[in-house]
Write a protein that binds this DNA or RNA. Structure first.
Lengths: 231, 231
DNA sequence: ACAAAAGTGTTGAGAGTACACCCATGC
DNA sequence: GCATGGGTGTACTCTCAACACTTTTGT
C-alpha cells in the first residue's frame, strides 16, 4: 500500500485484497504479509494493493497475487467489497476482496519492499490482523466451506494430479469432520469430472493409489439442480 | 451521477448501483431511470449514485434506493463489483452493485432531478442500457434465480401477508416454468417459516384462500445442508 | 508379520417427482 | 350452473447415510 494514494482527490481509494488459501501441515492456511509501514506497522495483513488506472479489478487482484506468490494462473474469484468509512485510519479506502486457492507445493511466497515478511497461518488461529481483515478472512472462509458443497473448487487446492485420498483429506480439513470413504469416492467419481491418469500410481509407504486429474475442459461445476455434495 | 466527481484526484470514483426487482404485470421487472445528462443521456440505466464520504456501501445503496423509491426497509444485498477500466466514458468509475427485492404495490418510483423518468421494465426484454448495466442486470437475475432455490428471499417480493398461490406465482415467474401445486405447498409449509394468519381469508372471485406470513424472526433461511428447494 | 492406506457393495430412510379430483366462492 | 383458483394424498424413484472387510505395499 502506498500512503500517498489514500488522500488524493475527494474520491475514496480502492484496494484489492486477496485471501489466498492453501492446505499445508494438515490444516487450512492463509497467506499473510507483515506490514512494513504504518498504519498497523508490524501487523499481519492480507496481501493487496491499489488498483492501477488501466487494469480491471480482476487484473489488479491477479497482479497483486503474482507479485506475492510468483504464480499466475491461480484460481481467483471476487468475494465481496468492504467499505465502512472508518475501516482504514488514513481515510476512505474501499477494498474489493478476492478469494484464491493454490496448491501449497507450487507456491513460494515472496517478500517485497512493502512486506518485510510473508507467511502461511492456520485459518483456525490467525494472528491479529490489520484493518478489517479478520472480517474479510471470516467471509472468505465461510464462502470456501459453502462452495465446497456445490462445486468442485477443492481441486484447485491440489496439483493437477492427485489421489482420491488426498482429495478427501482436503474436504475433511475444510469441513472439519470425517467423511465416509466409500460414499465420498462414489460421489466424486459419479460427477464424471475426473479421469484416471494411466501414467502410474502414487507410490509411497503403502498400497499404491490410483491418480486422477480433472477432465481437460472442466470448469468448476456449479450446481444446476440440487447440491453436488452433501456429505 | 455528478460529473464533477469522476475526475477529481487520481483515484477512481465509486458508485453504488441497484438492481431493484419486483413482480408486476405477471413478470419479473426491474426499476430503471432515464438519464437526464451525458454520457448516455436519454438512455435507461440502473438507479445509483456516488458514495458519500461518511457512509458505508450498504448505507449508500439504501440511501439511493430510498431516494428513488421512497421506501426504506427493503431487502438489499451486495451483488458484485464492476470495474472494467473503460466501463464509463468519463473516466475510471468502479460500481459496487446491489440487488434489491420489493413488493410492487408498496413502491411508487420517484423521479428526481437527475432522472427525468423512472419506470419498471420486464427483465426479459429491457431497453438498451447505459454503461455495463446490462451485464449487471444479467448477473443480478442469475443470482436471484439461484437464491430462490436455497433461500426464502422470494417472500421479499410480496407484502407481509400472502397466499400460497401468490407465492407460487412468484416462483413460477422467476424460474420460468410451472411447478406442481401439491409439491410446492408441502415443501414451503414443511420449512416451518410461515404461520397462517387468522385474521381472515383472501377473498376474491373464487374460493377464499388462507393467508400466511413469515414467522416474526424469520431472517431468510440459507441452506444448512442440501437445498431448501429443488422443484 | 504387521502397520497403514487403498479399494470395494448393500441396505434402509428420506426427499423428490409425478399425478387427479373435490371444494368454495363470484358471477 | 359454471368458471376459477383453493386445497388435498399416494406411489415410485433416486439420493443420502450408515456400515466392515480384503488388498497391496513398505518396513
Amino acid at each position: 500500500m502506498v500512503d500517498a494514494q489514500v488522500a488524493r482527490g475527494s474520491n475514496p481509494a480502492i484496494t484489492v485484497d486477496a485471501v489466498v488459501f492453501t492446505i499445508r501441515e494438515g490444516c487450512l492456511q492463509v497467506l499473510l504479509i507483515r506490514r512494513g509501514r504504518p498504519p498497523f506497522q508490524g501487523r499481519w495483513a492480507l496481501p493487496g494493493g491499489f488498483v492501477e488506472s488501466s487494469e480491471s479489478l480482476d487484473q489488479a487482484a491477479a497482479r497483486e497475487l503474482e507479485e506475492e506468490t510468483g504464480v499466475s494462473e491461480i484460481y481467483l474469484e471476487q468475494l465481496y467489497s468492504f467499505g465502512h468509512p472508518d475501516r482504514d485510519p488514513r481515510g476512505r479506502v474501499i477494498s474489493v476482496a478476492y478469494f484464491a486457492l493454490v496448491p501449497a507445493k507450487e507456491v513460494q511466497p515472496i517478500a517485497d519492499d512493502d512486506a518485510s515478511e510473508v507467511g502461511w497461518y492456520a485459518v483456525s488461529g490467525p494472528p491479529p490482523l490489520a484493518f478489517d481483515h479478520d472480517e474479510i478472512l471470516r467471509t472468505a472462509t465461510a464462502r470456501l466451506r459453502s462452495k465446497l458443497e456445490y462445486t468442485t473448487v477443492a481441486f484447485q487446492l491440489l496439483p493437477s494430479r492427485f489421489t482420491l485420498g488426498e482429495l478427501q483429506d482436503v474436504y475433511e480439513i475444510i469441513l472439519g469432520r470425517p467423511l465416509d470413504k466409500r460414499n465420498f469416492r462414489r460421489k466424486i467419481l459419479s460427477l464424471g469430472v475426473l479421469t484416471e491418469w494411466d501414467g502410474g500410481r502414487r507410490t509411497g509407504r503403502h498400497r499404491p493409489a490410483r491418480i486422477y486429474s480433472p477432465i481437460p475442459d472442466h470448469a468448476d461445476r456449479t450446481r444446476e439442480k440440487g447440491t453436488i455434495f452433501s456429505f
